[in-house]
Design a protein around this nucleic acid. Structure first.
Lengths: 221, 221
DNA sequence: ATTATTTTGTGAAGGTTTTCACATAAACAA
DNA sequence: TTGTTTATGTGAAAACCTTCACAAAATAAT
């Protein structure tokens, strides 16, 4: 059976998309390990999920498997890449070349998946004009003109919480529709702009909660 | 009415805990803005949630509000801190003082919430023994002895994916029960060890998905 | 004091997500 | 060729989470 991309009307849940990211990562690994096919059972085991969950997630987008055999690793990986939109390059700009910002510029996982950070912005006069890992740092004042010029599609915000909203206002004015925010603050943006927040304390706080509450862990089969 | 800490048997959902983190952050802000009380309505507006959601979340842990008035900002903040276990210091070690690792050492949001990074480990001979932001970097070979010596309770793993599992095996042997993992890999740990993963590509991939699928956004009231 | 207003806390309803269970289909073995 | 095994795809059931709606309690107003 040909893998078919379902033209789905149904709303896909955030969890499903996040799991697709996990499947994609694991499929890359399986490819390296020279697996030709993989069952929902094996995939589930590696992600600590149920096989039914894996099958249901994939079934929202089409039928990719063969009964009795499983899923073709390379083909499924391609299909998921296409679903996630990571089968193409994304031009990304990063605002705020501080501690976290610089770390993200060198973050291999981004470039490996064709998220290319091609522009940097900062407000520090000492940094502006200097070369950081092959990219000249622009003045944050020029966001509105330089983002469209550079055909940027996604902006990563890694500035202090106190100024994040002002930066984002400019980013939105520049016509950007997708923002990844590392500042610990709730950003206000128009309805048609996507914002995702990366809150690194949250998971530490979850650990803290789990420990003080001796929260029962999910059983691992 | 006295705020009471409910001795809840019921399992609390991950989402509720994550929202408590958000409430905590917003309450800190409200405190700075000199609010004495806050209604579930106001809190919900700031987090883009419903008032019922806020009240339900809090109700799992006790009754903290006053009818007709709302919640006392300072008191509620204290209560949430106590629920999350962030009303005390946590001794944290960080393994892997690379790009991301160094950024985390200086991450203000951690220290502001009493997560204290007091030990650093690396495998790079040039780094071992050197002083990084006031902390001498230890040899990664000594994890098993030095983690208990330093009374570490939480370990942040910021090493390459290829070595993460080996590191974590040592960390577990050292008796650590809580791990925050930045390596893009699924770690295997015993049942009684908590692992939370910080996967920074995931949210970028979600943005990518949203854009290529013109995913309808949640309506904002 | 009495009434109107505000806002919590919470069962019940409604909605969403996950798991179950099985018909179906392909592969493999004899 | 036929039977056995494996493993998908998917409705239906179960579990889980969010929202509704309202009684209850406190404040504020007259």
């Amino acid at each position: 059976m040909e893998p078919t991309a379902k033209l789905s009307k149904k709303r896909i849940s955030e969890s499903t998309i996040h799991r697709l990211s996990l499947y994609y990562r694991t499929l890359s690994l399986l490819e390296k390990e020279n697996y030709e096919t993989v069952s929902s059972k094996e995939l589930a085991k590696r992600e600590k999920l149920t096989p039914a969950q894996v099958r249901k997630d994939l079934s929202f987008f089409g039928t990719f498997g063969t009964r009795g055999l499983g899923y073709p690793v390379i083909e499924l990986k391609k299909q998921i890449a296409s679903i996630l939109g990571i089968d193409r390059q994304w031009r990304v700009a990063l605002v705020g070349v501080g501690n976290i910002g610089s770390a993200l510029v060198s973050y291999k996982e981004f470039s490996r998946q064709d998220f290319h950070i091609v522009k940097l912005f900062d407000n520090d006069q000492r940094k502006i004009g200097s070369n950081h890992k092959g990219i000249v740092i622009s003045d944050i004042k020029n966001l509105e003109t330089e983002l469209p010029e550079a055909k940027i599609e996604i902006v990563i915000v890694a500035v202090p919480a106190t100024v994040a909203q002002y930066i984002v206002d400019d980013v939105v004015k520049a016509g950007i529709k997708a923002i990844l925010n590392f500042a610990p603050v709730n950003l206000k943006v128009p309805d048609d702009v996507y914002v995702r927040n990366e809150n690194m304390s949250m998971e530490l706080e979850y650990l803290s909660f789990a420990m003080v509450n001796e929260h029962p862990k999910k059983k691992v089969k």
